[in-house]
Design a protein around this nucleic acid. Structure first.
Lengths: 201, 201
DNA sequence: CGGCGCAACCGCAATTTGCAGTAATGCGAT
DNA sequence: ATCGCATTACTGCAAATTGCGGTTGCGCCG
């Protein structure tokens, strides 16, 4: 919230737009709460409110707010958490049909394609070196890069699972088919390599 | 919840353990709510409660519960949402110091290594073909595969950002350095390829 | 046998959320 | 010109969720 206000003073509605457009990629937030938060910040002295020519309340960050934002950036961050309901459905796929499994995988892939398309449209303006938003191009690019990697991982995974499960005729007690076995071996191998690499550093 | 009970009847505490151990990867849940949900399921007739020899309430799924679970698997799934606070800190990194940025990237990499190690320990038993949990090995492996891919993406990304930002001496108005530019180009290129691929199918 | 710690839970206040509603503005069709 | 309808820009409220702290009982160590 303070981060958003640090970019420019905004009305509550503009904030909701901003969040829908960009923040949702890393921090999904119910719209309702976005209308209450700015008031809370005012109460804490971290933001104040000015009325602009259209008579709209426009919140802006105060000096205390900027300090609080900097403090927040200094503090240790909680680590990412993935709310992944399609994955949950795969975990319990043995309680449903093979079609259920394939449907959810297809939905994931369609979703990835849609998100990616949307994201591309948002990033393309940055390709012009003379765009208006260039002073934040570096952070925006880095963020987009992770989003793109995560979506890519999701897509690759869904594609592989589609393949692996293509010839299943039941979801239960499939156990370790050679393909699943290969998946498991690769996964453990990759994990070990990565952990080992980390220890070296 | 129903999914967990479908595996075997469980006490509320066992459920919390189970969730901590495995479900957290796709569905992080505050412990508190796990104690209320089973009662709610009983109210809906989807679970019932038996008292075992230790005098503990043990919840088990009813037939209605299994039907509800199957219905749930048939319905369209909400798509994944990533609560990624480190990414949020990168998005607003220009309000803080270069050290703040590097600290959060380091923390992410450490976290990935830790999670991976934990996950490996959990998956290794499945390598034995004669393990006890083999009837769910296929779904568990598939789930672990996505988790591993997502963690891998996170790690690769953090490593690249560490590299790209290694010689920054400010976080503000860095704009498109050649390295960031290359990142942007690759990202857009990858995205276009993937979207095009999706249209072909 | 007293103290300590941990496993296993639950009450409660405070916050958060979804949903439904509403007022204002634009805009195309009749 | 004006009617209907969609979209923008919010807000109230009831219900659900959550964090925090507390409790009980058990085992183990000194």
């Amino acid at each position: 919230m303070l981060g958003l206000l640090s970019l420019r003073p905004q009305t509550p509605y503009e904030i909701t737009q901003q969040v829908r457009r960009s923040l949702d990629y890393c921090w999904p937030t119910p719209e309702r709460s976005l209308y209450d938060q700015p008031e809370r910040l005012v109460g804490l002295g971290l933001a104040d409110v000015v009325t602009d020519r259209e008579g709209r309340r426009r919140y802006q960050i105060t000096d205390a707010g900027r300090v609080a934002l900097r403090r927040w950036l200094e503090r240790a961050s909680p680590m990412p958490r993935f709310h992944n309901e399609p994955l949950l459905r795969v975990l319990f796929a043995d309680q449903g049909s093979v079609e259920d499994l394939h449907r959810v995988l297809g939905a994931v892939r369609a979703h990835v394609a849609e998100r990616l398309e949307l994201g591309l449209a948002q990033m393309e303006p940055y390709l012009d070196d003379d765009g208006l938003f260039q002073e934040r191009a570096h952070v925006v690019t880095i963020v987009a890069d992770l989003v793109s990697r995560l979506l890519g991982a999701l897509d690759d995974w869904a594609a592989e699972v589609e393949q692996v499960s293509a010839d299943w005729d039941t979801t239960q007690a499939v156990g370790l088919t050679p393909q699943v076995r290969a998946m498991l071996d690769r996964l453990i191998d990759d994990g070990r390599t990565r952990v080992a690499q980390h220890r070296d550093v």
